[in-house]
Design a protein around this nucleic acid. Structure first.
Length: 897
RNA sequence: GGGAGCAUAGCUCAGUUGGUUUAGAGCGUCUGCCCUACAAGCAGAGGGUCGGGGGUUCGACUCCCUCUGCUCCCACCA
């Protein structure tokens, strides 16, 4: 087979990916092998591949391919997430572009557009994953809103409701005025913001009937205007909410404001009279110690309102504009009103001052330009204490291991302070809540039934007193959909239909899955909740290991983002460098849990490695076996050495895999191939120009190459398949991806150590050459001690281009020490005695200093008394080795002089 | 405000219960090489008082305290 001079990934990758697909190599069905299962973190169905996906999915693919080659029935289940908020927002935007408003459409019409959008854009990301080489079982591709998954969600909702874990309640929730839906606390991200603190005048209203009586206490602060009217000053960041004020609150222990006790004050501009209440909640030190209370628009104020029985005035519409209830600025956006009301207050001499103020403002995780509004409304909640109780033990007890383990603390803290999960969303794109409302009279408490179908709902409704004759038409289904995560938390179970069809063959075989690879940013959203659902519905953990990847950043450490334009397009990279190069580039710089600083140079390194493999293969391939050629000694030794080194490295790689140190495993493999196999092994056995190669060496080399390809395959699937296929005639249906992963054997450490001495000797001679400006082509004479590993001399001779012998070097030689033996390069005519003496003296001095440090340790009675024997022996060995080296250097010096 | 983590070569990071010759790797840098596998390469070299200070110990990059500087997570201070 003729190979191109350069590796061309694009012509190779599609070819082998289709081959793998055609032969269904990725497909898994239960059999008698142990299962190895990964469920993909389902990407947004209409999303496109970014660098984070590349990292995440490369790691999953490495794990899956490795497992597949080590005897497991490996199954990587792919799928996509309906991502309700994000997708609905995209559809709303698209419709807006067409001049259609969501609220002008019926639910059915809107969903028709949404499904069209999903069909059009959905699944693109899965095609992109294929370009990466992902070995997912595509026959199992799922969608969080497909039939089975939807059915699972409905069943779980009904089940949890019946267990009393789901309830409906009026709560202060986080409202996204743009998407016009409620969000869970986890979906709100807080951002530092430069804002203003407005100091407003609240005049005392009841001076006629209840004159202000200063207490005269120390610290009392009275405010009186030029006309002698008393007023309080309230500091607020949100002056636009004063229309909703129903009280002003002071701390009963605050001497500054105690004179306000029992009074009423006037809300500025609004002219509503509100009471002054007292509560220890108020921070005396903050602002003026006076707090305006707006129960409808602040969580704490709501709590205050409850204890003090205050009226709740909701002044906002769902879209964040002011409502009729505000009485002023009706219809204007809350942010515009904030600016305007400051002006109006100032004009009315009700604005005392404005200060700069840093505070945190909540935004929707999905929508970074509209601040979240606390809002009082009725929603569906899931009680979480029960789930926290069942999800904590498996992680604390190590049944589930987190990599890195520091996330156990994060996990624990969250579960120990768990809040109920708001699961309803005012969206149409999602799983519609299976609850039906019964007709109820005005002011009467709402009545509803939760059921899988309308028929069930009707049957349930008819059992309620007074509704025995209700008809299906009178039931109205809840308009809301469920939080996206309410379907993804079932993912490891629902993918194998474990909810609808408990105990089926697949769920029994594939569950629990093995490893989960995901980002720490969704540890609460997803990881924790999957553990909850797994424990609730399978009475078992959903996975044994969670590998948390870092965030992909640019080389300056900035997050990749569209705005910064610092996020390369993975497909462009793959087209330019090849998928294997991109995979390797991502893997090299990623240790579990650490952020990844991405730089093109890493991918270039991956590309270079492909080139190296390619060329090494070309070299081996051009060799011809000559039966008449005897195996050279150097080759025989090289074969033995590399075989042992391979065994040693395999053990290292196994160890790295077992600890999820994927990048270390890759690094070990990289060095084995490049430094050891190419730079040493191939150079030793390489026949001279035009010469044939002996059969034994050639065959051993093919065995090595085959093992190396298998070893590298999980990391770089395409080039390894290409080369493996090119190695010999392969039958249709054969593939490297289903070969056995190389198994480590016992390595001869002594042989490897001897060989290291030889390598150092070679490097030493080369260094002398470079130093003396001698061509590598000129053969030199080298003399070594008897202690030099004799068997390796032939290797030194070959690689350093020297004649090597044991014995005494002449005076005209340059010497260096390798380990404890002397290597001398005969250099008659090239030697500068002064220089060599200086060099040797320098190294002699160094050895003496080292000797002194070792001896001072050994002379230390404490050391000798306390240190373990092995350590003391080690120091003794250092001492004797050092003495040997000193003797060697001194003899060289003597010879020179 | 609470919690977690990090600080080792120019850059990115290893350093696994304290002792493995005087701390390692990859990339980058410098020098010399186009030698029929590979210049996307080969050969060689330089580069660190392990953030500062203190302590424990015979011995500290490793354990403890403290300071400094970053990062992340959580939290209702208007």
């Amino acid at each position: 087979m003729e190979l191109d001079a350069k590796y061309n990934p694009s012509s190779v990758e599609d070819k082998w990916y289709s081959y793998w697909l055609k032969n269904k190599f990725f497909h898994s069905t239960p059999d008698n092998r142990p299962a190895y299962t990964i469920v993909i973190p389902p990407p947004n169905v209409t999303g496109i591949l970014h660098m984070g996906h590349v990292l995440n999915n490369t790691i999953q693919d490495v794990l899956v391919r490795h497992a597949r080659m080590t005897g497991y029935n490996a199954c990587w289940v792919p799928g996509t997430d309906h991502a309700s908020i994000a997708t609905e927002a995209k559809v709303v935007n698209k419709l807006a572009g067409m001049g259609i408003k969501k609220r002008d459409l019926t639910r059915e019409e809107f969903l028709k557009y949404a499904w069209e959008w999903k069909e059009e854009h959905g699944g693109i990301i899965l095609e992109q994953l294929k370009k990466l080489g992902s070995s997912c079982d595509w026959d199992r591709t799922a969608f969080t809103m497909d039939e089975k998954r939807s059915e699972s969600v409905m069943k779980v909702f009904v089940d949890l409701y019946e267990k009393g874990l789901i309830y409906r309640g009026l709560r202060m929730v986080n409202w996204d005025p743009k998407a016009q839906t409620v969000l869970s606390t986890e979906e709100v991200v807080y951002r530092d913001e430069k804002s203003k603190l407005y100091y407003l005048r609240y005049y005392v209203a009841d001076t006629d009937t209840n004159p202000v009586k200063p207490t005269g206490e120390e610290g009392e602060v009275l405010h009186k205007d030029s006309e002698g009217r008393y007023y309080a000053i309230v500091a607020t960041t949100r002056p636009e909410t004063i229309m909703g004020d129903t009280a002003m609150c002071i701390n009963p222990k605050d001497p500054k404001n105690r004179w306000l006790r029992g009074h009423k004050v006037v809300v500025p501009l609004v002219d509503r009279v509100i009471p002054v209440i007292e509560d220890r909640y108020v921070d005396i030190e903050f602002g003026t110690g006076c707090l305006k209370v707006t129960p409808a628009h602040d969580v704490n104020d709501y709590a205050l309102g409850k204890t003090h029985n205050l009226e709740v005035i909701d002044i906002f519409n769902p879209d964040g504009t002011l409502s009729e209830a505000a009485g002023m600025y009706v219809g204007q956006d809350r942010m515009d009103v904030r600016r305007q009301i400051a002006i109006d207050l100032d004009k009315a001499a009700l604005l005392e001052k404005v200060e700069d103020y840093d505070n945190k403002v909540g935004y929707s995780e999905r929508n970074q330009d509209t601040a979240v509004e606390p809002r009082l409304c009725k929603q569906w909640f899931l009680k979480m204490q029960h789930f926290a109780d069942i999800a904590l033990p498996p992680v604390l007890e190590g049944k589930i291991k987190f990599h890195p383990s520091k996330y156990v603390t994060t996990y624990r803290n969250w579960l120990e302070n768990i809040q109920d999960w708001c699961i309803s969303r005012q969206l149409w794109w999602g799983h519609r809540i299976p609850a039906w409302f019964l007709p109820a009279a005005e002011g009467e408490e709402e009545k509803f039934v939760v059921a899988l179908t309308l028929e069930d709902a009707l049957a349930k409704a008819r059992k309620i007193n007074g509704y025995e004759n209700i008809s299906a038409e009178e039931l109205t289904r809840d308009e809301d959909a469920l939080d996206t995560w309410f379907s993804s938390w079932l993912w490891p179970v629902s993918l194998f239909d474990g909810i609808n069809n408990p105990g089926n063959e697949e769920i029994r075989y594939y569950y629990p899955t093995n490893d989960l690879v995901t980002g720490p940013d969704i540890i609460f959203f997803w990881v924790a909740r999957m553990i909850m659902a797994g424990e609730e519905y399978m009475k078992d953990v959903p996975f044994s290991n969670v590998y948390f990847t870092g965030i992909v950043r640019d080389k300056l450490g900035r997050k990749m983002s569209k705005q910064l334009g610092n996020s390369p397009d993975p497909l462009t990279l793959i087209a330019k460098y090849g998928a294997d190069a991109v995979r390797m580039g991502m893997l090299m710089c990623s240790s579990a849990g650490n952020d990844v600083l991405y730089d093109d140079s890493q991918v270039e390194q991956g590309r270079n490695f492909c080139g190296k493999m390619w060329n090494a293969f070309r070299l081996v391939q051009m060799w011809k076996v000559d039966e008449k050629v005897q195996q050279p000694q150097a080759s025989a030794l090289a074969v033995k050495w590399f075989s042992n080194l391979l065994d040693k490295t395999l053990a290292t790689v196994d160890d790295h895999f077992s600890k999820f140190r994927i990048n270390d495993a890759l690094m070990a493999v990289y060095k084995l191939f490049w430094d050891e196999f190419c730079a040493w092994y191939l150079e030793i056995i390489k026949p001279g120009y035009g010469e044939g190669m002996d059969k034994a060496t050639y065959e051993a080399t093919l065995v090595f190459f085959d093992k190396l390809l298998r070893l590298i395959h999980p990391f770089m699937p395409f080039i390894t398949e290409e080369l493996w296929q090119a190695m010999s005639e392969r039958k249709e249906g054969e593939t490297v991806m289903l070969q056995q992963y190389p198994v480590a054997g016992q390595a001869d450490e002594g042989l490897i150590a001897d060989f290291e001495i030889a390598k150092e000797a070679v490097a030493g001679v080369r260094s002398v050459r470079q130093d003396k400006n001698l061509s590598p082509k000129d053969k030199l004479n080298v003399v070594v001690d008897n202690s030099f590993p004799q068997a390796t001399m032939t290797v030194v001779s070959r690689l350093a281009n020297v004649d090597i012998s044991c014995g005494e070097a002449s005076a005209a030689a340059v010497s260096f020490v390798v380990g404890t033996t002397k290597v001398s390069v005969e250099l008659a005519g090239h030697i500068n005695v002064e220089e060599e003496i200086a060099k040797l003296e320098e190294s002699l001095e160094y050895q003496h200093r080292f000797l002194a440090s070792v001896r001072s340790k050994l002379a230390n009675e404490g050391f000798v008394a306390h240190a373990p024997q092995a350590v003391i022996d080690g120091e003794r060995k250092k001492e004797s080795d050092c003495l040997e080296r000193i003797a060697t250097i001194e003899s060289s010096l003597k010879a020179l002089r």
